[in-house]
């Protein structure tokens, strides 16, 4: 099963490498990883999308928690949460037909075209990872994807619950 883990940790040099190292050392899976300082710049927040059964997840959570730099870890997928990922994708938009079609699909998915070249459109889209997958699949049917980049997902719990020190 897919899980989204949110980790709050000291914004120290090397802290990220400890997390990444731990996952590789213990053969845990990383589907995506994002990291940035929080509103409190002494803290970083890492979001990791991973897969594993309950036993593996229990070990991942415990092992991450054991790292000295880590303040808190929570499995967002355990309860209601909001999940977002950013996609930038550059596609071939060479004639009227493809331009119209790309624009139409972007609108349906509520993406926006952020750059236009002689033969390309660059589209920005945010949403759940599933939505981004669906968008890319649809685009592929209409035109050629030249390049794409995804941020990896970030997430936050719904309601009052907060991950903070």
């Amino acid at each position: 099963m897919r899980h989204i883990l949110s980790i709050l940790l000291e914004n120290e040099p090397g802290a990220l490498s400890r997390i990444v190292g731990l996952f590789s050392q213990r053969a845990f899976n990383i589907e995506s990883l994002t990291v940035a300082p929080t509103d409190d710049i002494t803290l970083s927040r890492i979001t990791i999308a991973t897969r594993g059964d309950d036993k593996v997840l229990e070990q991942i959570v415990k092992q991450v928690n054991k790292l000295v730099d880590v303040m808190k870890i929570t499995d967002l997928t355990e309860r209601k949460h909001v999940e977002r990922e950013l996609l930038l994708v550059k596609v071939v938009a060479i004639n009227d037909k493809s331009r119209t079609e790309v624009k139409r699909i972007s609108d349906i998915f509520r993406g926006s075209i952020v750059d236009i070249g002689k033969q390309i459109y660059t589209i920005e889209l945010t949403g759940s990872s599933d939505k981004l997958n669906a968008f890319l699949d649809t685009l592929k049917n209409e035109t050629e994807i030249i390049e794409s980049v995804r941020s990896g997902c970030v997430g936050i719990a719904r309601g009052e619950k907060a991950l903070r020190v």
Partner: peptide, 16 residues
């Protein structure tokens, strides 16, 4: 050395 020992330490520090 901090990189070399990362999987076999409880913690490590780079003094700066």
């Amino acid at each position: 050395i901090v990189g070399c020992t990362r999987p076999i330490i409880k913690h490590s520090f780079n003094c700066r």
